[in-house]
């Protein structure tokens, strides 16, 4: 098959997948899962384990004494989502993590083709039956970003103090808040976890754009002490953009 036609056909298939979990024909889904299984066993099993419990032979070394250990796909608890806290991620969330990796913990698998990454996403979802029962939806980020003006940053700084972000991230946002220093922050596995140093974007695990930051504020990072601030920001969602502008202003980025 002509490679262009093959890619075109694949793009059509992806469009179909954008709706419910598996869209398209049942046979196509089964083939995807089976192909995804092959890729998973080559590329993912070493850390996430044959049964997807995050107990692969290499998982322990990456986080022996502190978070974050390889994701347990069997419990349906995902950190990096665009959905409300407690929900499953949408396919695009999983695809984004496979593609970009997680700084510090998981390398990017952009070396896999786009087709292969979607296939492995399809297989990962088979570890948790909830994916067949729920239809997660991404939350709305409430319009376009607010320009990063001095006023916006100033408002964001005030919000940073009001919302007590400093207790974990520290007054200078270097990840050295009093709760963190006391060793009280742990993930769902009971491993010590450090808040992000918000002055250094290279370690940000859920993206570095203003949209990524706002998404993180709304969704939280399930399984970690970072909560969703959706309820606090309800009714004045523009404050999320101000807070994101302030946090981004703390770090230099080209």
């Amino acid at each position: 098959m002509n490679i262009f036609m093959k890619r075109f056909g694949w793009a059509l298939l992806m469009l179909g997948m954008a709706q419910p979990a598996f869209g398209g024909s049942e046979m196509t889904s089964l083939n995807m899962v089976e192909d995804g299984r092959t890729i998973y066993e080559r590329s993912c099993l070493i850390c996430h384990g044959a049964s997807g419990k995050g107990d692969g032979p290499a998982a322990f070394y990456n986080a022996a004494f502190s978070a974050s250990r390889a994701r347990d796909f069997t419990v349906g608890n995902y950190k990096f989502r665009s959905t409300v806290s407690g929900s499953l991620p949408v396919d695009q969330d999983l695809f984004r993590t496979v593609t970009d990796g997680i700084p510090g913990s998981m390398p990017s698998f952009s070396g896999l083709s786009i087709e292969q990454r979607w296939q492995v996403v399809a297989y990962i979802k088979t570890f948790y039956s909830g994916f067949q029962e729920e239809t997660p939806e991404s939350i709305s980020l409430n319009g376009s970003p607010i320009p990063s003006t001095a006023a916006s940053i100033q408002r964001g700084k005030a919000l940073f103090e009001e919302m007590d972000c400093a207790s974990c991230h520290g007054k200078q946002a270097r990840g050295d808040g009093s709760v963190a220093l006391a060793g009280e922050l742990k993930d769902s596995r009971g491993l010590l976890i450090s808040p992000n140093d918000l002055t250094n974007r290279t370690g940000w695990k859920n993206g570095t754009t203003v949209r990524d930051m706002v998404r993180t504020l709304f969704t939280g990072l399930d399984g970690t002490p970072m909560p969703s601030y959706e309820s606090q920001l309800a009714g004045h969602k523009e404050d999320a953009w101000h807070l994101a502008n302030y946090i981004l202003s703390l770090s230099h980025h080209e």
Partner: peptide
């Protein structure tokens, strides 16, 4: 290159 820590590849 891959923006990960040493323990992704090493026990120690």
């Amino acid at each position: 290159k891959y923006e990960v820590n040493c323990h992704v590849c090493h026990t120690r």
